[in-house]
Design a protein around this nucleic acid. Structure first.
Length: 488
DNA sequence: ATGTAC
C-alpha cells in the first residue's frame, strides 16, 4: 500500500493486457522507448516504485530497441532491475555490466533420471549427506578441482568442451547447454589477475545465497508431447543445479564497471543512475567487458558441469547397484545473467542487437537455429527454479516469444523480503523443521541461511510462471517438487 | 550474487 502523497505504480502504468503494462515515454525525461512490465494485476501489488524507476532508467540508454522490459519476478537490482531484459542496437547501442549482473551466467540446469520418488525416498537422507560433503558450498568455498593458469584460460575460452575433454560429463551434454556451454568471443587477456586468482580454486563450487543443488520429483505434467521430448514423466526423480561464476564473474564485473564508469563520461552518455555505467557497443571499453563476460560465462558453465558430474557419481554410488543405468541425462542448462549478440526482427527488419538478460531466461521458439535437434519441434526448455521448499517448473518456449520479449522469459520467484529482514523475522531451525515435516530435507552451512531463503521471502513461483504461460512466451510442461536441498 | 568493507 502506498501513502496518500506517494505516487503508486498504478498511477504510472498503462494497461496493455492482463499481463502487460506500459511505462509511458513521458514518465521520465529522455526515455527513448516505453517500459513494458509483464505482470499480473495481483503481482503488480508486489512491484515497488524503485523497480519501475529502474525500468524507465534503462529506457534512457542509447540505442535501446522497442521497450525496456521487466519480467513478473522483477525486483530492484544494481542499475538494471533483476528480471530485466533490454536489447541495444549493435551499432548505435551500448553494452552495460549492470544489465548482466555481478554473477555473470548465473544459471540453472536440470538432470533427469530413471529413478522414481519411491526409489529415492528411503535413501534420501544419506544421499543428501554425501552430496553436501562432495559439493563444496558456501561463501569463499574452494573446490576439489585444482586447475593451472593455462587450464583456466582453456576454461574461459572453451567452456563445457574443456569439461568434457577432461572427463567431466559426456559429449551428449554439450548440445543441451545454452550456447553449447561455450560462447565464442572470449579473450582471457581482458580478465584481471585478481579475477583469475579468485576463479582458479572455485571450479565445482556451489556458492551461497539462493544457489542450490536440489533433488526433486515430477508431480505434474502439463504438456505430454513436450515432456516426452525432454524425457520427463510423472513420479520421475530429477536434480537441479543453480549457481554461477562465483568470485571470478564478480571480480570481472567489478573490474570492468570501473572502466565503464570512466567510459560513460568519455563518450558523453547521459546516465540517470551511475550504476548504469556503459559504453558504445563497438567501443574498446564495451568490447573488452564483453570478451571478459564471455570468459565468466564459459567458467560458469564449467562450474555447473563439474557439480553435475560429481552429483552423478554420488547418485551412482547410491543407486546403480540396484537400478543399473540411471539415465542421468542433462535435460537443459540455461543462463539467466548474460548479454548476447542476437538477431531479432525489429520493425520487420532483421537487426543485430546486444540482448541483456539479467534475472531473465532465454526462451527461443521452436525451429530456432540455436536449438538442439531434439528440441527443434517443442522449443527451448525454460527452467524456472522455485524458492526453497516450493515447486520448480519446466516450460517450453513458444512461437510468440521473439515478438513479445526478444525471446526471453522469467527466471524464478523473485525476492519480496530483504535478507536482513528475513533474518530478523524468521528462525532458520523452525523453517528447517517445518520443511522436514513436509518431507523436504535441507542441508545448509548455517541455519540463518535457511531463514534468508525461506519460502515466505519469495513471490510464488507458480504465480510468476502463470504470467509467462498466459502471455504466451513459454508454456508449462512439468512441475517439480523438492525432496532435498543443499544450500551454501 | 560476493574473500557480505580495501
Amino acid at each position: 500500500m502506498s501513502e496518500e502523497n506517494e505516487t503508486s505504480v498504478f498511477d504510472v502504468l498503462k494497461k496493455i493486457n492482463d499481463n502487460a503494462w506500459e511505462v509511458p515515454v513521458g514518465f521520465k525525461p529522455g526515455m527513448n522507448v516505453p517500459g513494458r512490465i509483464f505482470v499480473s494485476e495481483s503481482l503488480l501489488h508486489l512491484l515497488d516504485m524503485g523497480t519501475l524507476d529502474q525500468v524507465a532508467n534503462v529506457a534512457i540508454l542509447p540505442g535501446i530497441q522497442r521497450y525496456s522490459m521487466a519480467m513478473p519476478d522483477a525486483h530492484l537490482g544494481y542499475g538494471f532491475p533483476i528480471g530485466g531484459v533490454a536489447a541495444f542496437d549493435k551499432h548505435s547501442g551500448i553494452i552495460s555490466p549492470g544489465g548482466v549482473g555481478f554473477d555473470i551466467n548465473c544459471g540453472v540446469r536440470l538432470i533427469r533420471s530413471n529413478l522414481t520418488e519411491q526409489d529415492v525416498r528411503p535413501k534420501l537422507s544419506g544421499l543428501l549427506d554425501e552430496l553436501f560433503e562432495v559439493i563444496p558450498t558456501g561463501v569463499g568455498s574452494k573446490g576439489r578441482l585444482k586447475v593451472s593458469d593455462a587450464e583456466l584460460d582453456d576454461i574461459f575460452v572453451h567452456g563445457v568442451q574443456w569439461a568434457v575433454d577432461n572427463g567431466y560429463g559426456v559429449k551428449a551434454d554439450i548440445g543441451h547447454c545454452e550456447s553449447k556451454g561455450q560462447m565464442s568471443g572470449a579473450d582471457p587477456s581482458t580478465v584481471s589477475l585478481r579475477a583469475r586468482k579468485r576463479g582458479r580454486p572455485q571450479i565445482g563450487t556451489l556458492g551461497s545465497g539462493n544457489h542450490f543443488l536440489e533433488v526433486q520429483y515430477i508431480d505434474k505434467i502439463y504438456d505430454e508431447e513436450a515432456a516426452s521430448a525432454m524425457g520427463l514423466r510423472e513420479g520421475q526423480v530429477t536434480f537441479m543445479i543453480h549457481c554461477g561464476s562465483r568470485g571470478a564473474g564478480h571480480q570481472i564485473c567489478t573490474d570492468h564497471l570501473q572502466v565503464l564508469a570512466q567510459a560513460s563520461k568519455k563518450y558523453g552518455i547521459p546516465l540517470p543512475d551511475k550504476q548504469l555505467a556503459c559504453a558504445p557497443a563497438q567501443s574498446k571499453e564495451a568490447q573488452d567487458y564483453f570478451k571478459a563476460m564471455v570468459c565468466a560465462a564459459n567458467y560458469a558453465w564449467v562450474n555447473r558441469h563439474v557439480i553435475m558430474h560429481w552429483t552423478r557419481e554420488v547418485f551412482e554410488r547410491h543407486f546403480a547397484a540396484d537400478h543399473g543405468d540411471l539415465g542421468l541425462d542433462l535435460v537443459y542448462d540455461v543462463a539467466h545473467n548474460i548479454a548476447k549478440l542476437e538477431e531479432h526482427k525489429i520493425n520487420g527488419k532483421n537487426t543485430e542487437v546486444y540482448v541483456h538478460r539479467k534475472g531473465a531466461t532465454r526462451a527461443f521458439p521452436p525451429g530456432h537455429p540455436d536449438l538442439p535437434e531434439d528440441y527443434l519441434v517443442v522449443g527451448q526448455p525454460v527452467l524456472i527454479p522455485g524458492s526453497m521448499g516450493t515447486p520448480s517448473y519446466v516450460l517450453c518456449s513458444t512461437e510468440d516469444s521473439m515478438d513479445i520479449s526478444f525471446g526471453s522469459a522469467c527466471h524464478g520467484a523473485g525476492r519480496v523480503m530483504s535478507r536482513k529482514h528475513a533474518k530478523k523475522e524468521l528462525i532458520g531451525e523452525d523453517i528447517r523443521d517445518e520443511l522436514s515435516s513436509r518431507g523436504i530435507l535441507v542441508r545448509a552451512t548455517q541455519p540463518s541461511l535457511i531463514a534468508e531463503e525461506a519460502p515466505a521471502v519469495y513471490k510464488s513461483s507458480s504465480e510468476v510462471v502463470d504470467v509467462v504461460h498466459d502471455l504466451g512466451i513459454a508454456r508449462k510442461v512439468a512441475r517439480l517438487l523438492p525432496m532435498g536441498v543443499i544450500k551454501g
